[in-house]
Design a protein around this nucleic acid. Structure first.
Lengths: 151, 151
DNA sequence: TAGCATTGCATAGCGCGCTATGCAAGTGGT
DNA sequence: ACCACTTGCATAGCGCGCTATGCAATGCTA
């Protein structure tokens, strides 16, 4: 018996990838004039809320690998968005602090992100948007559970 | 007046990025044993359906940049998944053909993808899953419309 | 307190998005 | 036939995911 052909246009995974690429493109073209890239914006969202976090804190909150965050922070430091200072109690760690420049970008950058979110959900009613966000959350949970736990 | 704080856990764009990373991770860990990476699998989905496409065809169907596809195809050729032959009518173009090895991977690779999709939608009812896929489609449309058209 | 495991971070290497370029081959208009 | 425009592809360079390593600082425990 022949299996159904795999239809990428109905595959949640394929669609999720496509959607995420488009989100990143629309966001990037709007925040590039500010000197920002998507992962930097994501990182700033945390730091705008709470300054002085460690790399470890950011890794935990944003769910990326430590090496990924290390590189993103290196680019942000290079671009004058953050400074790293010695941690008070732990000589291994460093605390991350925003520069004036980074602080000033909050308004325009968040506005850009809201704009992109609005574009994406333009064709949905309020209740539909709500369900959409909830559903993505469920998918995230389902996919997290399946992570390799054996390390 | 102070704007609402931007809450990433309720931002469609942030969630979309997170979900897509998780989808890619789960898929990759399942198809890595087959010698495949996610973008290669995506490309194979088209070629399993129709062999002998050109790079241009793949770019149009999968909505990635030409340069991205060129690199993905180079890796696939290096890994013995495809061969490129001279196009019959156009000396600039090449047609892409699957190797035996690539053809044989269809079953296990598609099974892996179905498995990951199932994980993601485990916590949803049938109707909810349907709405989810439809909603992602709407988001894709909304985000595509906003693409820079001025080139 | 000496020794070992854990933790925080950096770095190398690779997949895969993107933009920007460049070249050769095809096409259309005069 | 010629020239300009377009089209198909390759390449360089960069952002940002990932795994795998390595090192120094910390913590735990015998």
């Amino acid at each position: 018996m022949t299996r159904d052909r795999f239809d990428r246009t109905r595959s949640a995974g394929y669609l999720a990838n496509h959607m995420a690429r488009l989100f990143a493109q629309r966001l990037h073209e709007r925040i590039r004039p500010l000197g920002l890239a998507p992962a930097q914006f994501m990182t700033l969202l945390e730091l705008w809320d709470e300054d002085g976090l460690t790399q470890r804190d950011l890794v935990d909150r944003l769910d990326v690998e430590q090496a990924t965050m290390a590189n993103t922070l290196a680019r942000m430091e290079r671009d004058g968005l953050i400074e790293r200072r010695a941690h008070e109690a732990d000589a291994r760690a460093k605390t991350i602090h925003l520069t004036r420049r980074a602080r000033d970008l909050r308004g325009p950058a968040e506005a850009a992100a809201r704009e992109v979110n609005a574009m994406a959900m333009e064709g949905m009613e309020a209740a539909e948007r709500e369900r959409f966000v909830v559903a993505i959350g469920k998918a995230v949970e389902g996919l997290k559970v399946g992570a390799q736990t054996d390390r």
